[in-house]
Write a protein that binds this DNA or RNA. Structure first.
Lengths: 224, 224
DNA sequence: TCCGAACTGTGTCCGATGGAATCAGTTATT
DNA sequence: AATAACTGATTCCATCGGACACAGTTCGGA
């Protein structure tokens, strides 16, 4: 399946004609399509056509479309970073912001990673590098995992939110249009939106990040 | 588009034959298919066949598949609850747990709600009922919105996680299988998983919920 | 009372999708 | 040189969402 494909080393066979394509080249072509026109525009035909080959040629390098998307995701999230901040909290903040940056650079990764799927080496590497910075905290293994899961989920949610509305203005516009007609049914929502003068995605992200890490800090202090 | 369809009242015409189907019946048929076999199994043909009609009949009630899914989502999340807990924190906890319950009851709603899409009346009702319980807190409108967004995102993430791995055991098994071969590359992950004796989805959810609300509490206390 | 307008569900057709099977041509090993 | 392995292309298929025209049904206005 996909998991062996992501993790297993693909041995280059020696006989036969030289392959004209590479797995990385195919994935990059698909990645370019997804970046430019969204994940829905990524089809075997489209990717092959962009490379100047026929659709079925790709199946010499990939078992199916699921594997193509999996490799695209791996290349989109990219190699895990080296965190420069010192201290667990600045490190987690840096990690979260970098992860959000990757999501924002390739918004389609979010819809490509819903549902059950195997994790690739890069994705595990991201987890690893975050866990390394909180290993010494007085938290259990499950708590450490859950902490970075909450942070990753927060980043995902904001990236999705940012991708869904081109700059919060559209969101306000769409919601405001509905509220203009049915506003009386949602007084609290109307009031909250009226007081929210378009802070933007960054502000929403930083707010949630600060709340989560404040909560972690409360837990840590209660144990020391 | 979809937004008028979700919000606009559909006037029942008086002339012509009596409609044999209803929008709600169609949506419920699709919902049953999605619950049983996943969102991918929901096609116009499939839903129509389950109802004993042909595919094109559905287009008399729905402009397209996007609207079908939107109505399915609305019926899946259901009417917003009446929160019984008193105090802003217990109320938000109750709200989050109820939302998680809806997600877990219909896991496909998560993949059905990625990307840009209009919110339905029920979804806005959920936001409204949570906002009503934190209206009196010393938070700005944007902060109130961001707070429930973080909570909703946390619930979404955990529901997705729970759906992707049938009970955390599969997750541990899948990851453990990979780690058995490449474990030396991920020492922190290995250690954290070894110490995580399968707490389960509930425990992970409660952990994140407590951290987020602790963080909100810190902010509130700093302002009073 | 009748006739036309509005509405119903159905059948046919289309382009695009992911993928299986097959085929002719190319290349390294024996 | 011969063989086995591999390449990319061609053809074919089921399924998808949806456009369109069609025959049958029902109500409102004359």
């Amino acid at each position: 399946m996909t998991v062996e494909f992501l993790w297993g080393g693909r041995a280059r066979p020696t006989r036969g004609p030289k392959p004209a394509l590479t797995l990385e080249g195919i994935a990059d072509a698909g990645l370019a399509v997804a970046d430019a026109e969204g994940l829905a525009a990524v089809s075997m035909q489209r990717v092959a056509a962009d490379l100047g080959y026929t659709k079925m040629s790709l199946y010499r390098y990939l078992p199916g479309k699921a594997e193509l998307v999996a490799v695209m995701v791996e290349r989109a999230v990219g190699a895990p970073p080296t965190l420069t901040a010192s201290g667990w909290r600045p490190a987690l903040e840096e990690w979260s912001r970098l992860l959000l940056g990757r999501y924002l650079a390739h918004p389609w990764t979010i819809e490509a990673t819903v549902g059950r799927r195997p994790l690739g080496p890069y994705e595990m590497g991201w987890m690893e590098c975050a866990l390394a910075r909180i290993a010494e905290l007085p938290l259990t293994g499950a708590e450490r995992l859950d902490t970075i899961a909450v942070l990753a989920g927060h980043g995902r949610m904001l990236a999705q939110q940012a991708a869904a509305m081109v700059g919060e203005a559209e969101m306000s516009a769409a919601i405001a249009a509905v509220l203009r007609e049915h506003g009386e049914r949602f007084p609290q929502l109307t009031a909250a939106l009226a007081g929210a003068a378009g802070g933007g995605t960054d502000q929403a992200f930083e707010y949630g990040l600060a709340r989560i890490l404040d909560g972690v800090e409360v837990l840590i202090r209660s144990r020391s």
